[in-house]
Write a protein that binds this DNA or RNA. Structure first.
Lengths: 210, 210
DNA sequence: ACCTGAACACCGTTCAAGT
DNA sequence: ACCTGAACACCGTTCAAGT
């Protein structure tokens, strides 16, 4: 039994039941083993979870050919969407990615690629570094807010709308007026909206720097 | 013993030891009580944590007078900085705020106020709603990334720089080149940078809509 | 009627005993 | 030398017994 299979199984279980509900006993049983055996392959639950987080980051696939010939703006959009898509496939893993700066091998590779992308399009080093950080924050922040109170996404959206609509309009005139807008916009579209805000800002920063 | 005192004490303990390390026994002892007694005031640890999260949101104070006469851009900046400042005082609470859409009374009030701010400056309803979401995502996402691997902020920044610098420059040329930029920029400045990107984008969206 | 000590089922982790 | 059953300390939660 190698670490890869343990991490794969842990990710599968987390996708099904969440981080909170994953227990080492459950994981051991799924691997036809015992909890004590697991400890021979990693140092504790926290380290295992870090491996799972990096495993998910490794799932983000942006073939270099796909970015060839694109403007930096298009290339960043493709990359951010790929990242976002992967996070949406593993919503239960999001708290792990948000809780700390990812420094596993796959996290480092992703960081390296995006900073290189900015540099290759003439961004000054400082702007490239901060652009990377801002976009990373945005994608993770957006994804984590989206997959909120545990319930499945479609249910949740309409539940949230019901909640907003049930509020007293006298106390919350703006929130109730915007209830439809806050919850009915397709999430992909809302993701694009915020991303475009950031890209508009970066475009302006590049013009100002030139 | 009222719920307010329980939540205040829980927040104090979380500020000191973190969410993971807070136990109901510890909380009960700090209140000179027993765990069973706590359950008469809330339904379980999760509900208590939701109360703590909303308690923190209630700490964000932006007096209406302070926003009088400001442009929407200035007013949003003041509000976002106040929010950010409060989150920095309670970094251990961040995972709670990121894990779900805050629907407690203080969360609702904050949402209402910011959407109203946009509306009062002529933003269309849809743009106001999405601007609120984008900025909320950004502030929480930025804050949560900033307070990463458990270690205190100053240590962490230099630790992270050492980590980046120790990488093989042949494998990670961009990351090592940007190591200084990634970790040495004052955090407040970096926060402002990303926020300004968003505000630039919103300004453009307003011009396009007009 | 209200409160709570003590117990319950279960967790992450460890280690002495097995092979 | 390697593996692991069984135990340890402790968790969130519950309830029957006290006041």
């Amino acid at each position: 039994m190698d670490v890869g299979r343990i991490v794969d199984t842990a990710l599968q279980l987390i996708d099904e039941v969440g981080i909170q509900a994953l227990t080492l006993r459950m994981l051991a049983e799924a691997l036809d083993s015992g909890t004590a055996t697991l400890y021979r392959h990693f140092d504790g639950k926290d380290e295992l979870l870090a491996l799972v987080a990096d495993r998910v980051l490794g799932e983000v696939r942006v073939p270099a050919e796909e970015l060839d010939g694109l403007s930096w703006r298009e290339a960043v959009t493709v990359s951010a969407k790929a990242f976002y898509g992967t996070l949406c496939r593993h919503p239960n893993v999001l708290p792990l990615l948000a809780a700390q700066v990812p420094v596993g091998p796959n996290g480092l590779r992703a960081r390296e690629r995006l900073i290189t992308l900015f540099l290759s399009h003439g961004f000054p080093l400082g702007l490239a570094a901060r652009a990377f950080t801002a976009i990373g924050h945005y994608v993770i922040g957006f994804s984590i807010q989206q997959h909120g109170p545990g319930t499945p996404p479609p249910e949740e959206q309409s539940q949230l709308r019901d909640y907003y609509n049930a509020l007293d309009p006298a106390s919350y005139p703006a929130t109730t007026a915007a209830a439809e807008e806050l919850t009915s916009v397709p999430l992909d579209e809302e993701f694009r909206f915020g991303l475009d805000l950031l890209l508009d800002g970066l475009e302006k920063a590049m013009l100002d720097a030139a």
